[in-house]
C-alpha cells in the first residue's frame, strides 16, 4: 500500500505557542485514519495545515505524490482532498440539493459567457451536476430532504450533508473534523454507515474525533497527539492498551470499562 498523505516534521508556531510540534505521520491509501488527543492537542491545526488554511511553519506535507506545503486551499482541494468542518459551514439560505451541488462546481467546465449563451450546454452541465448530487444524497439517505432549505434541517443532517458536498469534488481523501460531535446516537449510527459505505467505494478518510465508539468501530489506524506532539500511533487495539495514551487521554476508567466488556 502506497502512502496517501505524509507529514514530515510538520510544525505550526502561533507566536509563543507551538501548536503542532514536528509531527511525522504517514497515512496509507484506502484506510480510515484517526487523529485523536485531548483538547488543544493540535488536531484541528493539523487539518488546517493540510488544507492550506494555516501556513506551515516548517516541515512538509505531501499528498498523493504532490508536495502541497503552502498551496492555497482551493488548489489542495482540486488535488483531491475534501473536508468537513468542526462547526458546520453550510449555506443556510440554499436548499440541501444546492448545497451539495456547490461542491461539484469545480468539475464543470463552462465559463460565465458560455453559461449565458450556450443554453443547451449549460442545461446539460446543470443536469449532470444535479444527477450526481442526487445520487450522493441517496447514498447519504437525505434524498427526500433535497428541496428543504438548509437552515430548516436539523444539525445532524446538516453535518452529514457536508460529507456529501465534499464527495461532489471527487476526492481521494476526506478530512472529517469531529463528524460525530453534536450528533445523537442514532445519527451517529447513520454517520458510521455512511463513512463505511463511502470507504467501501474506495474513498479514504482522515478523521478527528473524540467519540471512542466511533473511532474504534471504523478506524484502521490511529495517531495520538498531545500538546502538539505525537505520542503514539498504531491500530485501535494497540492504542487502547498504550499506557501513555491512557494516561494522557483515554483515562484509567476507559481501560476498566474496556476490561469489563
Amino acid at each position: 500500500m502506497g502512502s496517501l498523505l505524509k507529514l514530515t516534521d510538520t510544525t505550526k508556531q502561533f507566536q509563543g505557542l507551538r501548536a503542532v510540534d514536528a509531527i511525522n505521520l504517514d497515512m496509507k491509501e484506502n484506510t480510515i485514519h484517526a487523529l485523536i488527543g485531548p483538547n488543544g492537542a493540535g488536531k484541528t491545526t493539523t487539518v488546517n495545515m493540510i488544507t492550506g488554511v494555516h501556513s506551515v511553519t516548517s516541515g512538509t506535507i505531501e499528498f498523493d505524490g504532490h508536495d502541497i506545503t503552502g498551496m492555497p486551499t482551493y488548489k489542495i482541494a482540486r488535488l483531491g482532498i475534501g473536508r468537513t468542518f468542526q462547526n458546520i459551514k453550510v449555506f443556510p439560505t440554499m436548499t440541501l440539493l444546492e448545497n451539495v451541488m456547490v461542491g461539484g462546481h469545480q468539475c464543470t467546465k463552462l465559463g460565465a459567457l458560455r453559461t449565458i449563451f450556450d443554453i443547451r450546454g449549460a442545461k446539460r452541465e446543470e443536469e449532470m451536476l444535479k444527477e450526481k448530487a442526487e445520487n450522493i444524497l441517496k447514498k447519504l439517505g437525505l434524498y427526500e430532504l433535497r428541496n428543504e432549505l438548509m437552515q430548516n434541517l436539523p444539525y445532524g443532517r446538516q453535518k452529514i450533508s457536508e460529507i456529501g458536498r465534499a464527495m461532489m469534488t471527487d476526492p481521494k481523501l476526506i478530512l472529517l473534523d469531529e463528524p460525530a460531535a453534536g450528533l445523537n446516537p442514532s445519527e451517529r449510527g447513520e454517520l458510521i454507515k455512511v463513512i463505511k459505505a463511502a470507504y467501501g467505494e474506495g474513498l479514504s478518510f482522515f478523521l478527528i474525533e473524540h467519540n471512542m465508539d466511533v473511532i474504534m468501530s471504523i478506524s484502521d489506524y490511529i495517531t495520538v497527539l498531545s500538546f502538539g506532539k505525537l505520542i503514539a500511533e498504531g491500530t485501535p487495539q494497540e492504542i487502547q492498551n498504550n499506557p501513555e495514551v491512557i494516561a494522557s487521554y483515554l483515562g484509567e476508567k476507559y481501560k476498566q470499562k474496556m476490561a469489563e466488556e
Binding site: 488544507t51 453550510v90 443556510p92 444546492e98 462546481h105 465534499a166 469534488t169
Partner: peptide
Amino acid sequence: KSLRDNADAVEMSGV
C-alpha cells in the same frame, strides 16, 4: 450565493 453564505466551505470545494 454560496460565497455570501460561507466562503470557506466554497474554497474547500476547490473553487
